[in-house]
């Protein structure tokens, strides 16, 4: 009798613990599923203001930004001012933006710039640019290691083999060097620097000041600010 009761207690205990483990497994599965959906690159903060696929009007104001992926002020510009620039001006076609590499902070700046050019080969420069600025974390600390740069290309859905071949071959280095020389010729000495319709403005500035410079340029071209 006592043995039977003991067996029944053991069975109940096993059942309860089994049920608890089952519940925990379901809990983990739900959490991981939610995390996978929430953390997919498409729904991350990166795509909140994607670069507008708009052809600029013929008399659009041209803005060139000289930047370094490791420079924190460039990151601040990319994360805080650029979404407004894209939304309010580039989307309307009245401003065209060109990003020119000006890697002045060391090896990982050059590596990141080359990787961005490899993303350009697949038509995804701006998405990769946004991603690198989101991942910025200090200077030459391994953040922009080839391994990370390749993994992030895959995260964005780029062709991994093509991207790796591009980065490993160093074929995009010439383009980065050409960009760097362009900045030097123009007298760029800080990042970010901007060329707004030929007028060089160096260093990060508050969005409101940048907007005033843009609006002056728009008025000069007869475009409404």
């Amino acid at each position: 009798m006592a043995r039977r009761r003991g067996r029944a207690t053991k069975g109940r205990r096993g059942l309860l613990l089994g049920g608890a483990v089952g519940l925990a497994v379901v809990l983990v599965a739900v959490l991981v599923l939610v995390a996978r959906i929430a953390q997919s690159p498409r729904s991350s903060r990166l795509s909140t203001t994607p670069y507008p696929q708009v052809t600029p009007t013929p008399n659009a104001v041209s803005v060139t930004v000289f930047f370094d992926f490791q420079c924190p002020y460039c990151g601040q510009f990319a994360r805080e001012s650029e979404p407004k620039l894209r939304e309010d001006y580039i989307r309307r076609g009245v401003v065209s933006l060109r990003a020119v590499h000006f890697p002045i902070l060391g090896g990982e700046s050059w590596m990141a710039a080359q990787a961005a050019e490899c993303a350009r080969e697949q038509g995804r420069f701006w998405e990769y640019y946004d991603l690198l600025f989101q991942r910025q974390a200090g200077e030459n600390r391994g953040t922009f290691s080839p391994r990370n740069l390749k993994a992030w290309a895959r995260e964005l859905g780029l062709d991994g083999a093509l991207f790796d071949a591009c980065l490993d071959s160093g074929r995009s280095l010439a383009k980065v060097e050409q960009d760097f020389q362009e900045g030097r010729r123009l007298g760029v000495s800080a990042t970010p620097s901007f060329l707004v319709d030929g007028q060089l403005v160096q260093g990060l500035m508050p969005w409101e000041r940048f907007r005033l410079i843009l609006e002056d340029a728009l008025r000069r071209r007869g475009l409404s600010p």
Binding site: L17, A20, V21, L23, L27, L31, G142, S145, N148, E155
Partner: peptide, 28 residues
């Protein structure tokens, strides 16, 4: 007691997933 165990085991599973992300996705 049972709720605590379920929660802790669930947390352990989710921690394992986050550690996998660190090692094989974020590489940090």
């Amino acid at each position: 007691l049972m709720g605590g165990f379920v929660l802790a085991l669930g947390g352990l599973g989710f921690s394992a997933y986050l550690t996998w992300l660190e090692l094989f996705v974020i590489y940090a």
